[in-house]
Design a protein around this nucleic acid. Sequence first.
RNA 1: GGUCGCAUAGCUCAGUUGGUUAGAGCGCGCGCCUCACAUGCGCGAGGUCGUAGGUUCAAGUCCUACUGCGACCACCA
Length: 924
Amino acid sequence: MQLAKAYSHIDLESKWYRYWVDEKLFAPGAGAGQTYSIVIPPPNVTGSLHMGHALNNTLQDILCRYKRMDGFRVLWVPGTDHAGIATQNVVERQLAERGTSRAQLGRAKFIERVWEWKKEAGDAILHQLRALGVSCDWSHERFTMDEGLSLAVREAFVKLWEDGLLYRAQRLINWCPRCKTALADIEVVHEEVDGSLWHIRYPLADDSGDSLIVATTRPETMLGDTAAAVHPEDERYQHLLGKKIRLPITGRIVPLIADVYVDKEFGTGALKITPGHDFNDFEIGERYNLPRISIFDADACVDGAVFLARGEAGAWIERYNGKERFAARQLVVAELADNGLLEKTEPHKLSVGRCYRCQTVIEPYLTPQWFVNIKSLAEPALQAVRDGRIKIVPEGWCNSYYAWMENIKDWCISRQIWWGHQIPAWYCKSCESANLMQNADGDYLFSKDAKPIVSRTQPSGCPTCGGTELIQDPDVLDTWFSSGLWPFSTLGWPERTEDLKLFYPTSALVTGFDILFFWVARMIMMGLKFMGDVPFRDVYIHALVRDEHGQKMSKSKGNVIDPLELMNKYGTDAFRFTLAAMAAMGRDIKLAEDRIGGYQSFVNKLWNAARFVQMNLSESERPTRWSVQASGSNRKPDQVPDLGLADRWIYSRLAATLTEARDAIDGYRYNDYANGLYRFVWHEFCDWYIEMSKLALNGAIGDDREGARRRLAELLDQILLLLHPVMPFVTEEIWQVMGNGRPSIMIQQYPQPRPEWIDGAAEKQMEFLMGVVRAIRNLRTELNCPPGKEVKAIFCGQQADLDFLHGQEPFLRSLARVGRAEYRAAGDGPKGAATAVVGATEVYLPLDDLINLDEERVRLAKEVAKMADEIARVQKKLSNSDFVAKAKEEVIQKERDKAIQFEEKIRTLRSSLEKIQDLQAGRK
RNA sequence: GGUCGCAUAGCUCAGUUGGUUAGAGCGCGCGCCUCACAUGCGCGAGGUCGUAGGUUCAAGUCCUACUGCGACCACCA
């Protein structure tokens, strides 16, 4: 088979992916090898994958392919997350578009509908992952609401309950009035907004005419005020202490309390207290045993019934009943103003909490919820990172982790939605009849006093009364509760499976920092609790992918780029290579599209290098026979001394590249990995080695054409193996097409550097040769010498260097178009020549043209000036007695060498310059 | 308010533990269809490394302050 003239990613990518799946190359396989495992951060089944997923999965795939080739039994578990609220919202929106709703469908039908969506979205996600080329083991694919994972969730819940780490309580929680559910603290996104600070006059209840002016950002909550407060030492208010206040509008009589919490400097120094709708006020209320009034219903509309139930009355209830909270605010402010009770309104910046799923402003709301008593779980999780059992990379994130873990609050895990793991707790209908209500959705609600029966399966009867009518708690669990179990639930827990034994703890977790607390921290706590061991050894935290201007990609900004589009346009390998090359640690990725184009060229370059190699091989010389990998350990290492300079050099560079590549990938330095390979392939192998190999292939140098071909093929193999983890498709295509039926590159051994390849002398010599070639090319270009025209070169310098160059004449001819070379003693340069200095060797191209003389004179003068600057710098250093006294000996020696070299160079340049000037003067 | 990160070529970014004339890709300029590749080849221009101090023989690299940008955390009405 021949490699096509050009690489066509569109056709080849799907072909090879299918091949890998069919050949079952993603499975960990049997055998005794060391295991390596990763669980995928399961994408939400809310829609399609974005750039962050592409990065995340590319990085994981690089690790997995590398480790697999390096002899590990690799298991990469793929899957998706049900993403409770987010997914429910997506489906609710779809229903709304069709003019129906969740409530109309009812719970069972609605859930059915979400499952249909899950199928659709899940398939799309899997399609995208495959397009990316990820090598996960699809036979291990999991979904957080799979039967097995549901079992794990119930097991975990019951265990926590049995260990006293779960409780149900009525607390002020973050309530999203749109999603109509409780949220955990971290699911609230705080945002600074421009608001107002209203100063409101609260008259005293004694009708003395005295009053207190409080300042608030939420005047509507005054309907639920149950106190006002001032600082006990605030002189302004001493005369009011112990008095009572009659609230405007409601007429409720509430105490004025004195508490040090109040900041005398803020606002008026007086504070209204609403324990039912403010977290701080709730705490103060607890200290003073204040009543908590929930003035809103689940939609955050004023609930008149609440006041009636308290025995409060008045026309105001009519006016406010059913008013949405912001409408209520306007009404309160207007009424206060009408009654002369609004003293002042001033602009004020405040932070509002919003639902992380729908951006609705959160309402602190008093409801019974389930909480995890988190402290005893957090402590070991903190310890695991502190003592290094879990390594976070980059380690800067440890601080965030510690800070969060140390201040962690109990975790509210119940959600009042339908899509998710329903809480495995039941209530006896007859025992709890006093605690039972039904909400608008038809769900039963149980008050804070109801006694749950927690059980892995539905209990057959009530343990207290024997009644058989048991109602399951309608709430579902926070989606992160189930994803917190992911590293072991996907491996079969609570069963004690072979997978768990082999692959837990997993080796690495690759994820974005945005879910460090949501997910990573929870997995660590859960893993330690239920498995008794950390869930993973390394956590690699990668950056956010932004657009080329550094903006976060978001639908609303319209700057979202679909990864599939880029893959189609540039090819997946180029896309993956770009992501890897830009994944520098601790820095966001600003994805500029032309960068991907640049790496597409790299794919093309590799392709053409392969075509060149193939072109030179006969059918019988295909890599099947010669490949280092194919012939395995039987193959004897190359006898280095027999190789020519270019060969010794490229193998030495290969050894260095291999070492760097392994170090880079082992340290999660993907950018170093990608860039190192780029440099080696393009600027060493293609730019120099291939060019030089042409002479050996033609027989222009040496007499081992077969050896030259063989080494070319072998080097190409090494390059393909090195690149495969980043560019799986094109490497497989070349590997297979050229290899006449050898097995997939995926199951080849990842290259090891061989010590005998390292050859410092060859590298030095090549650098010298390359320097000379570059110098000549430079002179030619500067002097407008046509590329095709051969020139005569005169080299002056030390005998050893001259001998060396003499031996390299064929290369000087092919690489620099040197037709004739002459060798002289140092300083014996010709009159009127373009001049360069490489190391200790002077390089002259004799000039025969006045125009050239002029140009060369100008050029030399510039060079001389530049050199003079350098010399001045070095001399300044060397004449500094402190430098000579204190710097390391090797550093001083380096500077001295430099000084000598520069002096020689400038002498040569000056002498050439003078000669040209003489020549020109003579002609005039 | 607290914590952390980032400022290097026109653009996007590298620059491990302070020590050769600070690098790459893209873009730009000039010259080349040289038999793997014009998605290419060769050569080049372009940076007082955010500002001001400090430590050091030596600072893009370490310290301090400042400016600008960003992120995370936080109950100040």
